[in-house]
Design a protein around this nucleic acid. Structure first.
Length: 906
RNA sequence: GGGUGUUUAGCUCAGUUGGUUCAGAGCGCUACUUUGACAGAGUAGAGGUCACUGGUUCGAGCCCAGUAAUACCCACCA
């Protein structure tokens, strides 16, 4: 059947993906082969495909397909992440917009039902999109961080850590997201410089009428929570105020002036208002000086009754009102614009509020040492290496991980507390009111009592009975922790839980540690570091041998891809327009590990053009007629011979590249090899004139080359290679490119490759002369080779005169022993050639050209002579380097002589 | 404040252990080609003081020090 002249990806993609699935090529179970396993960085269950996914999943697919073709037991586990905050936010919005429901009106159980409903309906879209990209995941293993086996592991791990004393509960200053109404870990807060205003506010000094202490603050709305004003002890300006008090504006609370070295006299006025409830530094100051803590904010960022003023107003609204009020009272001295680092929630973008709260923490210092060690001594290899430093710094300064979140969507913390009343626990009397974050004065009223950590409420009850000694307790006396766990508290177990670790070891023993992790460097702390720690904590070994950090995909103006900028391409449209292979090519061709990569659709276009090129090469080869009587011509023989050396070299190169994770090098090498060496040289050499018949063995050999190239390309461009694999020749069932053996490194003769390149250089020169003189390829020319030295006759060139005649389109080649006049000349290697044209040569232009070349040659020779005359060079350089310099000199002199003769001849 | 990168052609980037004619690739650009697999193509060409300064070395795009630009990460400064 005649093939269209353009490749249509749409005709191949779904067809072959379905075929591969049907054949079960993606599925993996433990056997006696060497395993090669990868776990996917689980995308958010709510996610849709973006360029970052395309990048890291293409890389994973390349690695997994290559391993599969190499006969390893390749297993790529897909799955999704429940993304606690992000998903809950989406569900809340959906409930509000679609169902007219507010979260606050629902019970926890009702909310969870809706959330699961939503997840079932909209979740996992991304997994189908990955199929469009060609991702060869083992779909039977699809995992979800909140499914039953994964959840079970989360609870076991929580309990285990608690029992080992690596988990605790504490009151601390936390990062509070007032929009999601939950605490965040440090890693979930993004600090960015923003424009801010510094307000200079006068605090009247008590007993000194008319005198003020002026403080600078960025957050006037917290003034009502002030419980002191601080200055530096050495600050001369304020010495006289020792022992005095000031009045907090508007609410007229008397507070002390405290002296502390923490204050920077150079900033603002050198006086600082102290609000222990709403700033972590102030909190520390407060602890040190025994200050009262007045929390003036609600969980949603509105002011509460303790603020006295503007109760119920949002903090930013309140800021404006406070400023107005201060102006009214004439206490606002001035304002200044300045830049400040503002922390925002990674998920909701809300400005994070420091808040005092009781939360669960993992004691990271106990988990870090083996994980740090593993990376520093390269048990786990980071690519690129520079992230080792980043990792080291973070691990050495690691802070405890806040893992509780005030959300419903997630794993509910398996801890129970006694409900209201008085108890005696382990000999200590506790009072439980159930209002755990309530603070008053500088004492925390209660911590909700001690937790009973267990897998079930029944077990928790037993624990409670034994610790209180009260056998009459019942389940109704216990209340489960309201909070859920940080999403990363389930994803950090991913390499273990996807193989059902914590349940049985069978699969884990086979697939774990996984071979490689491919992920963005932005989650090195959030995810990578924690997975390494969990690996050592529960498996006593590393979770993966190599981490390949991809860069961040940016647009061609170096801007981050974001929804608000609208600069993120529609990935599915991209695939529809160019084909999955082209998109894969596009993203790979420009993405060395680690560095950011600028994405330009143009690259996909290149990929598509490449697909078309291969497609048309197939059309050519497929259409060849054979006839047993046709002999294999010498030129064709030469083509096969020289091409196979080049191809062997190429195979060796890409093998090394891929093993070193230099995927963009590998695909680029293949691209130019297939395009230039195969299509432009090999096919041009062997293709018969006027579509006449050829020797059958030539076609067979050409198809064999082609097949190997398709195999080599397959991991990068799976669809078109599979399609062409079947187009090229009739195949038996199960003879698919996806399972063909991957070409490996092969010995080759570099000398033969160089000899071919030398021939090609002659052709290039001939073509250049044709081009410059406007002589078309149709016009056949005479070539004369100037050879004064008989002994240096180019046997090689004689042997391959067919090649030169064909590509140079010559009528004859002749060896001469003297200059040829009235001909264009060129030098290739050290030999001079004359091309006889039926046309006058522009002698002036030719002279200029020769003189330039001559000058260049002289300079070149001189630099080598200097080198060779340098005794130290002769003493120190390696013999082969010296030898080579000598050859360069000889070649240079030869060329110089040729040039000089040409100039005389003019 | 601490740390880590980057700087090579108009653009995006390779350049691995200092030594091969090492100054490269792709895109873009220029000229020519409506050639029979492919105009989504072919052939050829032009383009760079390798950021700067100094050092090590027989020899530096590559190693060292400093400078300058730039990007990012970490950190509790109102």
């Amino acid at each position: 059947m005649e093939l269209a002249s353009r490749y249509q990806p749409a005709n191949s993609e779904d067809k072959w993906y379905a075929h591969w699935m049907e054949q079960g090529y993606f599925y993996s179970i433990p056997d006696d082969r060497e395993p090669f396993s990868i776990v996917i960085p689980p995308p958010n269950v709510t996610g849709v495909l973006h360029m970052g996914h395309i990048l890291n999943n293409t890389i994973q697919d390349v690695l997994i397909r290559k391993a599969r073709m190499e006969g390893k037991n390749a297993c790529w586990v897909p799955g999704t992440d429940h993304a606690s905050i992000a998903t809950e936010a989406k569900v809340v919005r959906w409930l509000r917009e679609e169902k007219g429901l507010k979260k606050g009106d629902l019970t926890r159980e009702e909310f969870m039902q809706y959330a699961w409903q939503w997840t079932d309906k909209y979740g996992g879209i991304i997994l189908n999109q990955l199929r469009k990209l060609g991702a060869s995941c083992d779909w039977k293993r699809t995992a979800f961080t909140m499914d039953e086996p994964r959840s079970e592991a989360v609870f076991k791990v929580f309990i285990d850590l608690y029992r080992k004393g690596k988990l605790y509960r504490d009151y601390r200053m936390v990062n509070w997201d007032p929009e999601a109404k939950t605490v965040l870990s440090n890693e979930e807060v993004i600090f960015q410089e923003e424009n801010a205003t510094l307000y200079f506010v006068n605090y009247p000094v008590i007993d000194l009428p008319g005198q003020f202490l002026t403080i600078a603050t960025q957050r006037p709305e917290t003034i009502m929570g002030d419980t002191a004003v601080a200055v530096h002890p050495d600050d001369q300006r304020y010495n006289h105020l020792a022992g005095k008090k000031v009045m907090v504006p508007m609410i007229n609370r008397e507070v002390s002036i405290i002296f502390d070295e923490y204050v920077d006299p150079a900033f603002g006025t050198g006086a600082l208002k102290v609000t222990p409830a709403h700033d972590s530094n102030d909190y520390e100051l407060g602890k040190k000086h025994g200050l009262e803590i007045i929390d003036t904010l609600n969980d949603d960022g509105t002011l509460n009754a303790a603020a006295q003023l503007f109760v119920g107003k949002d903090r930013f609204e309140a800021r404006k009102l406070v400023v107005e009020k201060l102006k009214e009272l004439n206490l606002l001295q001035k304002t200044e614009e300045y830049k400040s680092n503002i922390g925002r929630s990674e998920r909701t973008q809300a400005v994070v509020e420091p808040k005092l709260s009781l939360q669960w923490y993992v004691d990271m210092k106990k988990l870090a040492p083996p994980a740090l060690n593993a990376v520093m001594k390269d048990d786990i290899v980071f690519i690129p290496e520079k992230y080792k430093n980043v990792y080291k710094h973070w691990m050495e300064n690691i802070r405890d991980w806040c893992i509780s979140r005030q959300l419903w969507w997630g794993h509910r913390i398996p801890a129970w507390y006694l409900v209201g009343g008085r108890y005696e626990v382990s000999g200590e009397r506790v009072e439980v009111s159930g209002n755990r974050d309530k603070v008053s004065g500088n004492n925390f009223q209660d911590k909700g009592g001690p937790p009973f950590v267990a897998e079930t409420v029944e077990e928790a009850l037993e624990l409670a009975k034994s610790k209180t000694g009260n056998q009459s307790l019942s389940i109704t006396d216990l209340k489960q922790d309201e909070d859920v766990l940080d999403t990363w508290f389930s994803s950090w177990l991913w390499p273990i839980t996807v193989f059902n670790g914590f349940r049985d070891q069978k699969e884990l023993n086979y697939y774990y540690p996984t071979s490689v992790l491919v992920t963005g460097w932005d989650i090195i702390f959030l995810w990578v570091a924690r997975m390494i720690m969990s690996g050592y904590e529960w498996q006593d070994t590393l979770p993966f041998k190599t981490v390949y950090f991809t860069g961040m995909v940016k647009d061609k103006l170096r801007r981050k891809m974001s929804k608000s900028l609208g600069n993120s391409p529609d990935c599915l449209k991209l695939i529809a327009d160019f084909g999955a292979d082209a998109v894969r090519y596009g993203i790979l061709a420009s993405s060395p590990a680690g560095g950011d990569l600028l994405f330009d659709e143009k690259l996909c276009e290149n990929g598509r053009n490449f697909c078309n090129k291969i497609w048309n090469a197939t059309r050519l080869v497929k259409g060849w007629q054979t006839e047993a009587s046709q002999p294999l011509q010498p030129l064709q023989q030469f083509a096969i011979h020289s091409f196979s050396h080049k191809w062997n070299k190429c195979k060796t190169t890409i093998h090394q590249d891929i093993n070193q994770f230099r995927l963009s090098d590998a695909i680029t090498t293949l691209y130019s090899f297939v395009w230039d060496d195969f299509c432009s040289w090999y096919l041009e050499m062997v293709k018969p004139e006027a579509s006449g018949p050829m020797a059958p063995q030539l076609k067979e050999q050409s198809i064999a080359f082609f097949e190997e190239m398709l195999s080599a390309l397959h991991p990068f461009m799976p669809f078109i290679t599979e399609e062409l694999w079947h187009q090229l020749t009739e195949r038996k069932l199960n003879d698919d490119c996806i399972k063909s053996p991957y070409p490996g490194p092969v010995p080759y003769d570099e000398g033969k490759i160089k000899a071919t390149l030398a021939l090609q250089d002659i052709i290039r020169s001939i073509r250049e002369i044709r081009n410059k003189n406007g002589i078309s390829l149709k016009e056949a020319l005479e070539l004369k080779i100037y050879e004064s030295d008989e002994s240096k006759t180019l046997f090689y060139l004689q042997e391959h005169r067919d090649f030169v005649v064909k590509f140079g389109n010559l009528v004859s080649i002749e060896w001469v022993t003297s200059e040829v006049t009235q001909a264009a000349s060129f030098i290739s290697g050290t030999t001079k050639y004359f091309l006889v044209l039926n046309k006058k040569i522009d002698a002036v232009a030719e002279k200029v050209r020769l003189e330039m070349e001559l000058a260049h040659a002289k300079k070149f020779i001189q630099s080598i002579q200097v080198k060779l005359e340098n005794e130290k060079f002769i003493q120190n350089a390696k013999p082969d380097v010296i030898e080579n310099e000598k050859k360069k000199l000889a070649d240079g002199l030869e060329r110089l002589k040729n040039l000089e003769e040409s100039l005389i001849g003019l």
